[in-house]
Amino acid sequence: MRNILGSFVKSAVRHVKGCSEFSSVTTIRHSSSFTYVPDTLSSSDGESTRMNLFQAVNNAMDIALGSDPTAVVFGEDVAFGGVFRCSIGLQEKYGKDRVFNTPLCEQGIAGLGIGLATAGATAIAEIQFADYIFPAFDQLVNEAAKFRYRCGNEFDCGKLTVRTPCGAVGHGALYHSQSPEAYFAHTPGLKIVIPRGPAKAKGLLLSCIRSNDPCIFLEPKILYRSAVEQVPVKDYEIPLGKADVLVEGENVTLLGWGTQVHVLQEVAQLAQDRLNVTCEVIDLVSIQPWDYETIFNSVRKTGRLVIAHEAPLTCGLGAEIAASVQSNCFLHLEAPVQRVTGFDTPFPHVFEPFYLPDKWRCLDAIKRVVEY
């Protein structure tokens, strides 16, 4: 462990020395922040109201409980609203039989969800932090993901959604900051989704809850209150497995998900201002299944790809996307695919600003692919 942390610190120091923008610890901490870019609605979206992300999640569950009498919400502390208040008010509205606390046992929460869904209920489970989903890993990847396959499609536990907060939050350290999406993306039979903001969160969560496949819905916890925008009041769903092109460009494709999408939108503007380079920014949205067609089409146009995610480099989802792009877009590539990610260490506390793929690290990656 000492050698791992030592190499991490050395890498961080090299990064700081190589960036003229960093001049103090205060500047370093500020550099890891991001500017939230709200989604805009069209007239077809109808009436809307201002919500942050946790309110949008709450609203989606409220609609699900109100429209489906079999729907239940459960997890540690959800009865009083949960740590992040995502389920606040739901027990008072729907009763203790439909919104209830569970013991502090993630394996039990996942097992209960599988049983409920198998029996015909719509199960909406909360794991309090994504870092604590690992005790439930066996239930999710060996039972939920395989249920339909092992039964020859005679039975399934499709109406199971597991919600959990993920990612960096500024002070979470190694047990409250992880991004485990790649672990689950390796397993056929699961759908994995990460929203970038409130409007997407509501529509995607309702799609997951109503999906015929078990879904893992990862909510970037730093966005719970910092992401605020107009959200449609109506009941609506957003298709799973479809990426969003947020900014069109000609020179470089920038790909991320969750919080990183907002970092990349800021990076795209920096690249335009400093390098006279136009970047196409894509939110992957669905981790599994992922929208390879949208990604490939963009890379064939730009010839360059930068992927950014908070999870560690080795075997992160960026590796799978890079390999797929290399196989399908090889003759269109003008430079090797770049990955800007967390490091292969436990998630740090005071070194979090070094660990995260901030706008300056992403801008450096753009420089590399343009100058290759």
Score class of each variant (00 low, 15 high):
2 R>K: 09
3 N>W: 04
7 S>V: 05
11 S>D: 15
12 A>T: 13
13 V>I: 15
19 C>D: 09
21 E>A: 05
22 F>N: 00
23 S>E: 08
24 S>W: 07
26 T>W: 04
28 I>G: 00
30 H>W: 02
30 H>F: 02
34 F>T: 05
35 T>C: 11
35 T>G: 09
39 D>I: 12
43 S>D: 15
44 S>P: 02
46 G>T: 14
50 R>L: 14
57 V>G: 02
61 M>V: 14
61 M>F: 10
68 D>I: 06
69 P>V: 04
70 T>Y: 11
74 F>V: 12
74 F>N: 08
76 E>D: 14
76 E>Q: 15
80 F>T: 15
83 V>Y: 10
86 C>Q: 13
87 S>L: 11
96 K>L: 07
98 R>L: 11
108 G>A: 11
112 L>Y: 05
118 T>A: 14
125 A>S: 13
126 E>N: 12
135 P>L: 09
141 V>Q: 00
143 E>V: 04
148 R>Q: 02
152 G>R: 09
158 G>W: 09
160 L>R: 10
161 T>C: 14
162 V>L: 11
164 T>W: 07
165 P>C: 04
168 A>G: 02
170 G>C: 00
172 G>M: 03
174 L>W: 01
175 Y>E: 07
175 Y>L: 08
178 Q>A: 13
184 F>W: 13
186 H>P: 12
192 I>D: 11
193 V>K: 06
194 I>E: 12
196 R>T: 11
196 R>S: 11
198 P>I: 08
199 A>H: 06
200 K>W: 03
201 A>Q: 06
202 K>D: 08
212 N>Q: 06
214 P>K: 09
218 L>H: 02
225 R>L: 13
226 S>A: 06
228 V>W: 04
229 E>D: 04
230 Q>P: 01
230 Q>T: 03
233 V>K: 11
234 K>Y: 04
236 Y>H: 09
239 P>V: 12
246 L>Y: 08
248 E>K: 06
248 E>Q: 06
250 E>N: 02
250 E>G: 00
251 N>A: 03
258 G>Y: 12
258 G>K: 07
258 G>C: 10
264 L>K: 08
265 Q>R: 15
266 E>Q: 13
274 R>C: 08
276 N>T: 05
277 V>K: 01
278 T>G: 03
280 E>K: 11
282 I>P: 05
282 I>K: 02
285 V>A: 10
292 Y>W: 03
295 I>P: 01
302 T>H: 00
303 G>D: 04
304 R>S: 06
308 A>W: 14
310 E>L: 15
317 L>C: 14
317 L>H: 14
318 G>I: 15
328 N>K: 08
330 F>I: 05
330 F>G: 03
331 L>R: 02
331 L>I: 02
334 E>Q: 11
336 P>A: 06
347 F>K: 07
348 P>I: 12
348 P>Y: 14
350 V>A: 13
352 E>T: 13
353 P>Y: 15
354 F>L: 12
358 D>L: 10
363 L>M: 01
372 Y>G: 09
